[in-house]
């Protein structure tokens, strides 16, 4: 008897659950998927866009740039967020599937090189950074700091941020094996704030008072620029990269309103609130 009842109960649940599905088609729903770097912008713009347009629902899913692009190719998402350019095999796959993508830059991310606040080092050149991250410089005293080993934090080797830093700061050389890989930027901030000899890089949006940004030089030490909203806007800060939204041109109409919103003055204001650099007009 108990068995029968519970079976009946589960069957009813299942039925009620399944019926919930079709009702949703009345509202328009958009899925945004991909890079964890772009997530905060997507989440906040989605929040305020939905507040203004009650008929639309926007789902934001992380998972990484690769996840987003794969989902876009398979038609599992409307917009893919990416913090890196398409990889060669992804481009080939697109060609094979004959999908045409629209790539829109929605914001610029400045990468801040950060250390523990107690670290006396204020500035580094690109060459020094390359030395630190490839493992040829291992002690702070070689950089004018105290005699302490350098603890290097980086993002996971599959993240777009990792690739970007390698390409634009490390002259495409590989990271040293001793580099600590953190699963997310938040974890890097947490770790560097509690490790005195630490150095790492984070998106400017993640800056907090618990860590100290360094000034960097891309001209062998002639001029040093610190990361700030201003220096990133006037492009004097050298380490910055675009963040992308990608969508299938067939879906252009569906996502147009939201895309316009993100690129509008209001949307760009949210970009700045979150801590990324809005696109200059």
């Amino acid at each position: 008897m108990i068995m029968k009842n519970s079976l009946l109960f589960t069957a009813l649940c299942l039925l009620g659950y399944a019926c919930g599905g079709p009702g949703s088609s009345a509202t328009k729903s958009i899925t945004v998927k991909g890079s964890d770097t772009v997530l905060p912008v997507a989440q906040k713009t989605a929040e305020s866009f939905m507040a203004a347009n009650p008929g639309v629902s926007i789902t934001v899913v992380g998972g990484g740039s690769g996840t987003g692009l794969t989902a876009l190719m398979d038609g599992n998402t409307d917009i893919a967020m990416s913090s890196r350019d398409l990889k060669a095999d992804e481009k080939l796959k697109l060609q094979d599937k004959q999908i045409e993508f629209e790539i829109k830059t929605l914001a610029v991310d400045a990468l801040a090189v950060i250390v523990h606040p107690s670290n006396p080092v204020q500035r580094l050149t690109r060459e020094q950074l390359e030395g630190i991250f490839t493992g040829s410089i291992t002690n702070w005293k070689d950089l004018g700091g105290e005699d302490a080993p350098i603890v290097v934090y980086s993002r996971e080797n599959s993240s777009g941020t990792y690739e970007f830093f390698k390409e634009h700061v490390m002259d495409k050389k590989n990271y040293a094996s001793s580099v600590l890989n953190m699963p997310a930027t938040g974890a890097i901030v947490q770790s560097i704030s509690q490790t005195t000899g630490a150095i790492g890089y984070i998106g400017f949006a993640y800056m907090t008072p618990e860590v100290k940004p360094l000034e960097v030089s891309y001209d062998q030490g002639q001029t040093f620029v610190g990361p700030s909203m201003e220096s990133a806007k006037d492009k004097s800060y050298p380490i910055s990269r675009p963040l992308y939204y990608l969508y299938d041109v067939k879906n252009a109409e569906k996502v147009a309103a939201y895309m316009d919103y993100v690129l509008s003055a209001e949307g760009q204001q949210i970009v700045e609130q979150v801590g990324y650099i809005p696109l200059s007009k």
Binding site: G64, G66, K87, N181
Partner: peptide, 21 residues
């Protein structure tokens, strides 16, 4: 010393790897 384990590697990298690559 820091170490990297197999399960942590899978969990951290799978999301960003391009599918089927």
């Amino acid at each position: 010393q820091p170490v990297r384990t197999i399960p942590a590697t899978i969990a951290a990298e799978l999301g960003e790897a391009s599918f089927g690559g």
